[in-house]
Design a binder for these strands. Structure first.
Length: 615
RNA sequence: GCGCCGUUGGUCCAGUGGUAGGACAUUAGCUUCCCAAGCUAAUAGCCCGGGUUCGAUUCCCGGACGGCGCACCA
């Protein structure tokens, strides 16, 4: 059984993660990663960085976690949050108070009305719960703000917010980042770091928290020109659960390839399809069980304010029963919970356009044409020496209006006098003064607002998934054991070193040497001489350490070079390896690029017949 | 935020109006040449606040935290 409580119990007991600030009673939604969890999370982030930053040729940045209010005004996060909710005293259902007011009165834009007045309006109009008709007159209207607010600087200072996603830190720096990309599309910027959402009700341990880690990639593309290298992942098999299947009574997820899904339009954006393929392979690499994994398309009503199309990677966790191949695999597996672990969104130019508007800065890339284009353009060069005295403070606005008019309606300047409107007032300007002319202009290119394709990974939920999917129980020599079949790349500890018995100085000394050697080789090593050898193996099995090195007398009493045994976690098989080689051999076993298996090690050094069986 | 249920060593549990017991784990020692063995000993706990009471871990109220359901999840 891999019930969630089993995973959480193991996580607490073995230092993966636990509720933070327990000494003070704790606060919901905040977790501390213990030594093993922090190491797994770090490994996961490294694997992500390797795949989505380094191998994709992207740039990684690190932006502040607190940003000023204006950023979130522009991004739309501020509006999206300030929902006024009123809860029905009878049925407990929450409703948007501003919407209720709008529905039953002539008022529009009730969102901008202060809360006390909204409460007053509810009383005046005797508004009732849409679900059960109970009166809402005496119910408080509450504001839900999912962003953590803080103040920057002393006194009243400036309002700031903890970022609700790392993405905004990338978007707001676009004008500079595009310089680092040498003004060429497409390019990608990544960021791994914490994000904050003041969740109303944090739940399910580490799955729904208020401070969490995101790993996001923002790909900036020219929507007209840039195509993803889809061929790289066209044959990757993915399990898709499109909106149409979710809506159908007998709909279900099905397996196809990325190439076909894009070809058939099931995945609307080739870029999104491309990242589904890249991500699929990455999930497999880090040990997500593909039988408990799918890509689910957002239903139309589910789409975020910025998203044109969106797919979630979902994993199934908390499912009872163990993975295929284990001893008790015959039992039917209970349904677990499907949790979102990554969102793949085509954000179009929403974010960059919004920040351009909000900041007044340019969030575009200049795209040079292959050949310069010559076009005729109507322009004006108003004589300000005349306009100034004539229109006073409005002169600048009049000049702007003339420029706009020249672009829109050049023919207007054929007459001797043109009329422009400024602040509802019509002004007449002599065509001469406007200095109208049609010029030949050479266009070398155009300013393009890039579109954004965003895979956004929830690191904590992936850590949880990796642990949940690695959780196994079996029997070793007739004794039950619990272990984590973590991919070696994810495991907190690379190897453990044990002297077989602790009453022989020679074994203790050699074990110390081997430990030092392995650590010098860059491995994360645990040394343990406490208790029986079996107990020590189980300790390491339970946290997922892939290899145990045991120093025994047989290894030091022969004629040849000293040897030690190397034990593989899942099978408990052992190979005797010379001390001089053990560091390099284990490093090779751990290297994700080196597909040398334990099998190969057994072939080259000879397996020890231990009589120990797992299963 | 609402409703129901819960909270006892590190973990999982038992129990009591007179401040607690087990299992596992941990530590030290003995033993031990390969898979949670054994022996000895040690460390360690009643979520917080208020009330009732001579006395509360136990009963009552409130809070925090956790689980489930509702709502929320841009």
């Amino acid at each position: 059984m891999v019930a969630r409580e089993d995973v959480i119990e193991l996580a607490k007991r073995r230092g993966f993660f636990f509720g933070a600030n327990g000494a003070y009673g704790g606060v919901a939604g905040f977790y501390t990663y213990g030594p093993n969890g922090a190491a797994v999370k770090d490994n996961l982030e490294s694997a992500w960085r390797d795949r989505f930053t380094v191998r994709q040729g992207n740039m990684e940045i690190e932006a502040p976690t607190i940003m000023p209010e204006a950023v979130f005004e522009a991004s739309g996060h501020l509006d999206g949050f300030d929902d006024m909710l009123v809860e029905c005293p009878e049925c407990g259902e929450s409703h948007r108070a501003d919407h209720l007011v709008e529905d039953d009165t002539d008022i529009e834009e009730a969102e901008s009305i202060p809360i006390p007045e909204v409460e007053e309006l509810i009383r005046e109009h005797d508004l009732r719960c849409p679900a059960c008709e109970a009166p809402l007159s005496d119910e408080p209207v509450e504001e839900f703000n999912l962003m953590f607010e803080t103040s920057i600087g002393p006194g009243t200072g400036q309002t700031g917010y903890m970022r609700p996603e790392t993405a905004q830190g990338i978007f707001v720096e676009f004008p500079r980042l595009k310089e680092y990309a040498r003004n060429r599309l497409p390019f990608g910027v990544t960021q791994i770091g914490p994000a904050y959402r003041n969740e109303i009700s944090p739940r399910k341990g580490i799955i729904r928290v208020r401070e969490f880690t995101q790993a996001e990639l923002e790909t900036f593309i020219d929507p007209e020109a840039d195509e993803p290298p889809l061929h790289e992942v066209a044959d990757v098999e993915v399990r898709l659960y499109p909106a149409t299947e979710q809506a159908a009574d007998d709909g279900e997820a099905y397996t196809t390839t990325v190439g076909e899904a894009v070809e058939e339009g099931v995945v609307g954006s080739a870029w999104v399809g491309y990242y589904l393929g890249v991500a699929q392979e990455w999930y497999e690499r880090i040990g997500v069980d593909t039988d408990r994994f799918r890509f689910r398309q957002h239903l139309p009503g589910e789409l975020a304010h910025y998203a044109a199309d969106c797919w979630d990677a979902e994993s199934q966790v908390g499912a009872a029963g163990t993975a295929a191949g284990s001893s008790d695999g015959g039992e039917p597996r209970d349904e677990g919970d499907w949790i979102e672990i990554t969102g793949f969104a085509y954000r179009s130019d929403y974010d960059l356009s919004k920040h351009a508007e909000g900041s007044g800065e340019s969030f575009t890339v200049f795209k040079q044409y292959d050949e310069p284009e010559t076009v005729e353009r109507a322009t004006v060069d108003p004589d300000m020496a005349t306009l100034g005295p004539e229109f006073g403070g409005d002169a600048g606005a009049v000049a702007d209006a003339l420029r706009t008019l020249a672009e829109r309606d050049p023919d207007a300047f054929d007459a001797g006098e043109v009329e422009v409107e400024v602040d509802g007032e019509t002004h007449a300007v002599d065509a001469e003064v406007a200095n109208f002319s049609v010029e030949e202009v050479t266009e070398n290119g155009e300013h393009v607002t890039p579109h954004v394709v965003e895979p956004s990974f929830g690191v904590d939920r992936i850590v949880y998934t990796v642990i949940d999917h690695a959780y196994r129980t079996d029997e070793v020599d007739g004794e039950e054991r619990t272990y984590l079949a973590l991919d070696p790349e994810m495991a907190a500890t690379d190897a453990a070193v044990f002297p077989l018995v602790s009453n022989d100085e020679r074994l203790l000394d050699l074990a110390d040497d081997v430990t030092a050697d392995l650590r010098a080789a860059g491995l994360s090593v645990e040394y343990d001489d406490s208790g029986s050898i079996g107990r020590r193996y189980r300790r390491q099995d339970e946290v997922g350490t892939p290899f145990c090195v045991t120093v025994d007398r047989d290894g030091i009493e022969g004629d040849g070079p000293h040897t030690v045994t190397v034990r593989e976690r899942d099978s408990a098989r052992q190979v005797r390896v010379p001390v001089a080689d053990v560091g390099a051999e284990i490093a090779a076993l751990l290297d994700p690029e080196d597909d040398r298996a334990f099998e190969a090690l057994a072939a080259s050094y000879g397996e020890i017949e231990t009589g120990v069986r797992t299963g």
